[in-house]
């Protein structure tokens, strides 16, 4: 009959790598629908405001453009980290990944600050359909950033243990796809929620 033994080496075969990347692309397809629906809900309900909390009164664009630049830069550093990994440059990879993590944390900090200032002014999750849909849309994106941060921490531990290998670079590639997608979603949140929300006053 069969003999069996357990193999345990830290590497992915070529086909495993391809599977993982393709799988994440499909995951992104599903996420597009998820965020599309959330945008739909937001656009349906953003008219249902109550006194003193309409988009153009609420949003502080200067803060938002800052976090936009921060997140866009993190996308850039993430791409650099991946380039480092494919070229086998450990230092480049790890420093750019740490950079990405820091930028992501700054973004999260800015978002928490933004939410905190709204809540402090009494615009909470339940105060109106507009606020609810705003928090759900932007908050879901924030959750994705948070998950990305945790993911990066795990990746850093992997990199520390395994250095740059086909194993870690596959993981990094999958992560970077996710991260660019999160960035793309932000481009739309920035445009549709903040810019157009602010521009409506014209």
């Amino acid at each position: 009959m069969t003999t069996s033994r357990t193999v345990s080496s830290k590497q992915f075969s070529k086909s495993e790598q391809a599977d993982k990347v393709l799988g994440l692309w499909f995951f992104i397809g599903a996420e597009i629908v998820l965020f599309g629906c959330l945008f739909g809900v937001y656009l349906t309900l953003n008219g249902q405001t109550r006194a003193g909390e309409s988009p153009e009164q609420l949003f502080e664009l200067k803060e938002i453009i800052l976090s936009t630049f921060v997140l866009l830069s993190s996308s850039f550093t993430c791409a650099q980290a991946l380039i480092g990994a494919t070229q086998g440059q450990f230092n480049k990879t790890i420093s750019f990944l740490i950079g990405t993590l820091l930028l992501a944390l700054i973004f999260l900090g800015l978002e928490v600050h933004e939410f905190y200032s709204y809540v402090r002014d009494g615009h909470t999750f339940t105060s109106s359909p507009f606020m609810s849909s705003f928090y759900v849309l932007v908050g879901t994106h924030g959750m994705h950033v948070l998950v990305g941060c945790l993911w990066m921490i795990v990746l850093l531990v992997h990199l520390g243990k395994e250095k740059v290998s086909s194993y870690t670079s596959t993981k990094l590639e999958v992560f970077s796809l996710y991260w660019h997608f999160v960035d793309v979603v932000w481009v739309f949140i920035f445009t549709i929620v903040y810019l157009i929300g602010k521009a409506v006053v014209l």
Partner: peptide
């Protein structure tokens, strides 16, 4: 950044455009 034009690009585009189609319908 996302190298969409590399291997299996057809399916990547299907995934994106399909998701986008449903998302736009929903919106």
């Amino acid at each position: 950044f996302m190298d969409i034009q590399t291997e299996r690009k057809g399916f990547k585009w299907i995934s994106l455009s399909g998701g986008l189609l449903v998302a736009i319908l929903a919106i």
